[in-house]
Computed example of a mutant assay.
Amino acid sequence: MSRAETTYPTAPRALWTFGLLRSELVTTLRRWRTLVLLAVLAAVPVLIGIAVRAETGGGGDPDRGGGGPAFIAQVTNNGLFLVFTALAATLPFFLPLAVGVIAGDAVAGEAGAGTLRYLLVAPAGRTRLLLTKYATVLAFCLLATLVVAVSALAVGALLFPLGEVTTISGTRIGFGDGLLRALLIALAVAASLVGVAALGLFVSTLTNSGIAAMATTVGLLITVQILDQIPQLHAIQPYLFSHYWLSFADLLRDPVLWDDLRRDLVLQGIYAAVFGTAAWARFTAKDITA
């Protein structure tokens, strides 16, 4: 099967790769599981917005924001803060859970359904198919994050006033600048999920059961999250993929603090390289019977 990769000219191979990617994206987005995950993610900002509105009556008293995700005390003064709050609320669990489900099912789901060997028919090839699967999962990372952000922005604009943004540093920036920072934060959150995507893809190459791969990926995600909260394990915590997830808050400082954001991007890149290579090594040597 893999020899077929060398028997087609470059242009047709490129067109095939684009077509394969488009097919994977369409197939993934049409699945009911994907639509349900996106619907749940979109509902989180709605629930947060309604809860804050009910608690404060839409007033501008930030002291009544109560406990909860970061930035929630500022939501009543500026609906844009609902974007930051929703991302802070979904990043520790809901977003990586959704990505883990999609990544874990990427290869194992095809094997379990008996369609994997048909996808490997020329001129696809194992390496190209694996890269396409990973690109699809990364696209879902971005889409899922944007769904949360757009839903939060819409709800925030509907339930609360919009205006200048007060940064964590205490300075005020214009609404346009606040929107730009919200977009940068959404991109930073999506990039923070790259490591989970690679881990899930690797797990997906280890089994022919999509459910087992999804469960294992989610289990590993929860385990890492627990390890990151145990003080006695502080020595290893900077190497856990979730450790710098909330560093996106530094984008709301004036000036922006980039150190932890860089560390997060580098760490995600390392996880992507390590588990991506492991997934490739496993997948290219795997005996495909389904």
Results as ranks from 00 to 15, higher is better:
Val44Asp: 03
Arg172Thr: 15
Ala198Ile: 07
Leu227Thr: 03
Gly276Asn: 06
Leu116Tyr: 02
Thr167Pro: 11
Val46Glu: 02
Leu21Val: 07
Ala89Cys: 01
Thr6His: 07
Gln268Cys: 01
Val203Tyr: 08
Ala111Phe: 02
Phe71Gly: 03
Leu233Trp: 11
Pro9Asp: 15
Val83Gly: 06
Leu246Pro: 00
Gln232Thr: 05
Gly170Trp: 03
Pro255Gln: 06
Val203Glu: 06
Val44Ser: 02
Val75Ser: 05
Gly104Gln: 13
Ala215Ser: 10
Tyr8Trp: 11
Asn78Met: 06
Leu87Ala: 09
Val266Cys: 03
Val203His: 04
Ala249His: 11
Glu110Pro: 04
Leu47Phe: 09
Ala213Gln: 10
Pro161His: 03
Ala190Val: 05
Pro238Phe: 10
Leu82Phe: 09
Gln237Trp: 10
Leu41Ile: 09
Gly174Val: 02
Leu21Phe: 13
Asp250Val: 01
Asp63Tyr: 11
Leu95Asp: 10
Leu129Ser: 08
Gly269Glu: 03
Val101Ala: 12
Asp177Val: 08
Val148His: 13
Lys133Val: 09
Asp264Trp: 01
Leu97Gly: 01
Thr207Ser: 11
Thr166Glu: 15
Phe283Leu: 14
Val40Glu: 05
Thr27Asp: 15
Met214Pro: 02
Ala186Trp: 13
Leu159Met: 15
Val189Gln: 14
Gln232Ser: 14
Val165Ser: 11
Ile230Pro: 08
Thr85Gln: 06
Thr207Asp: 04
Val155Ile: 15
Glu24Gly: 06
Gly174Pro: 06
Ile173Val: 14
Leu82Tyr: 08
Leu184Lys: 02
Thr145His: 14
Gly200Tyr: 07
Leu20Ser: 13
Leu15Gln: 05
Leu87Gln: 12
Val36Asp: 06
Ala111His: 04
Val224Gly: 02
Leu240Gly: 13
Gly57Leu: 09
Thr34Cys: 10
Ala144Tyr: 09
Met1Gly: 12
Leu131Ser: 13
Ala73Gln: 12
Leu158Pro: 00
Tyr8Asp: 02
Val36Trp: 12
Ala279His: 12
Thr205Asp: 04
Arg31Gln: 15
Thr167Tyr: 07
Leu29Asn: 02
Phe94Val: 12
Asp177Ser: 14
Gly104Met: 13
Leu193Ala: 11
Ala86Tyr: 08
Leu153Val: 03
Ala11Pro: 00
Phe81Tyr: 15
Ala152Tyr: 08
Ala197Trp: 04
Ala285Asp: 10
Ala273Met: 04
Val194Phe: 13
Leu153Ile: 00
Ile288Gln: 10
Ala73Phe: 01
Gly200Thr: 07
